[in-house]
Design a protein around this nucleic acid. Sequence first.
DNA 1: CTGAAAGCGCTAACAG
DNA 2: CTGTTAGCGCTTTCAG
Lengths: 338, 338
Amino acid sequence: MSQVTIQALAKELNLSKSTVSKALKDSHEISVETKERVLRMAKLLQYKPNPYASSLRRKKSNTIAVVIPEVADSFFSQAIKGIEEIAQTKGYHVLIYLTYENSEKEKKILEDVQSGRVDGVLMSVSSETSSTEHIDVLHAAGLPLIFFDRTIQKITTDKVRTDDYESGYQAARHLIERGCKHIAFLSISSHLDIDNNRLNGYKAALTDYNCAVSEKMIVLCTNNAAENYDILLQLMKKKQRPDGAIASVEKLITPFYLVCRKINLSIPADVKVIGFSNLATAQILQPPLTTITQPAFEMGKTAAAILFKALEKRNYSWREEDVIIRSELIIRDSTDMK
Amino acid sequence: MSQVTIQALAKELNLSKSTVSKALKDSHEISVETKERVLRMAKLLQYKPNPYASSLRRKKSNTIAVVIPEVADSFFSQAIKGIEEIAQTKGYHVLIYLTYENSEKEKKILEDVQSGRVDGVLMSVSSETSSTEHIDVLHAAGLPLIFFDRTIQKITTDKVRTDDYESGYQAARHLIERGCKHIAFLSISSHLDIDNNRLNGYKAALTDYNCAVSEKMIVLCTNNAAENYDILLQLMKKKQRPDGAIASVEKLITPFYLVCRKINLSIPADVKVIGFSNLATAQILQPPLTTITQPAFEMGKTAAAILFKALEKRNYSWREEDVIIRSELIIRDSTDMK
DNA sequence: CTGAAAGCGCTAACAG
DNA sequence: CTGTTAGCGCTTTCAG
């Protein structure tokens, strides 16, 4: 707790605290020598302005909230890095909130955040979130809110996302070109636009290339690792098992590989697979994984940049930007011909 | 920004703000029916107490800082999860600061954090940090500080770490038992106690099992991915190349695998490798990686728990705890015989 | 049981 | 160029 207040500093200098305050802010209405005196003394006494007193007065916290489903995922880790990096240069502080894919938690967090604790919010919605009213409320409160990655289309806000539809299309087309006939789409949520967009891209590619779209090939997974393993095991043990698969989310990759190993399916000979993933280890997997790699770091950075731009403006109005940063298909052995 | 203040709420209820304040805190000196009225109206008006006004008055922020070198690493991701989870249950807020392994940044962050912004700090020191004075200062300021994972032995603080010496010993012994004669130790820092402890464990095992300890086998890597690749490539191209390796840090694993592939060294036939790592993908690598797996989530949780316990006490005194949570050797194919 | 008043540390009019 | 004053929204004595 900082003991030395601006009052103490002023007293030491025989100045008023307002003069000291202005001097510390390098105000033009203070003489150069006074500024120097103040700065020197501030350093000497190790004066640290109390941020909350300042926030209270200025009605500005210089803090943002990052609300995400989880952190043990390389996408969000990299996104956080992008956000934190730019926040640091702008002198902002970053509060992290995890929703654990739970809509109730998300709601609570968003309520709390309206207290004035933060100047703005960066968010990637939880997979369980279907209703949007808790977001509308925050929105109505006038708090700048930027969605990144997992956006909600129908809410009017700035968004930073990737080309999910095209990526889904590209992934499916790649598998078709590599000879797959029955391509499974492994999804994590039927609510998330991001998943639906990828799914729609996948369906469009199948249709364009005269492959039947079968509901049986669209597999909804959960947030539970053990359950996912079972779901994938059931899928791959079927007679009519897929010969290609698209994992729409990173955490399905490990169970998918394990299931294939368990039942002696060879990747890519028996089944080819593409993962939406930012894993550094994709290239050293057995076999190396073909990925749709998202620009996670850039997305975090861009979302933060848009937020800070908004915060610097006087009257912020919604939905100024809908930025799309392209993902990249990186072909590796998991989709090799035979 | 919350528009409805406690004043407005009081006016609406024809009560004084002090009564309302007490009622909201469920004070015993307020009648039950008044409490109910207040609570109902608070809900109706969507009253959100301004946290900074409260913090200013109470000199307590209900916020902690987590200061770590990076986040795109599965150890820290999981640790954050552990921290956040318990913070959420305790009603605390979590500020994230990344040092990028840079001692200067770390210093700046710790200075800022003394402003009263947080009630305590959880920290894992940067690999560049050798001097400790910036930590002493924070320490002297009386701000509770808990180290986790990357601790500094000589600083008196609560610590949560893993059994690094034993892990290093165990890793080396395992490689010796699997027939390795020339075991490299891939380190990231010569300052970090954590690295030195692992290194010392490694050395002790070599000595105990009559293997020569050679300085040439102790390889100092950097924080730059490209550089690390080159360093490892040079190492493995030598005539006297190692037939076993211990990666003391997760990020060296991918370059190590890539180098081996590049120069056609087979893992484990030509060289066996163990990684200190929490990677979910360890089991599906080519080949599956033998790991020393740290209890990252538990370490984060424990560190946070100790901090909160400290915050609840009146007069906190240092170095009450030095908790060691054991890591686990998980044997996989990368250290197979032949 | 309720209210009046003071003040946390800072900033921003407004005077001088 | 410097100082006085008021107040951000809340909590906490201390009276009533």
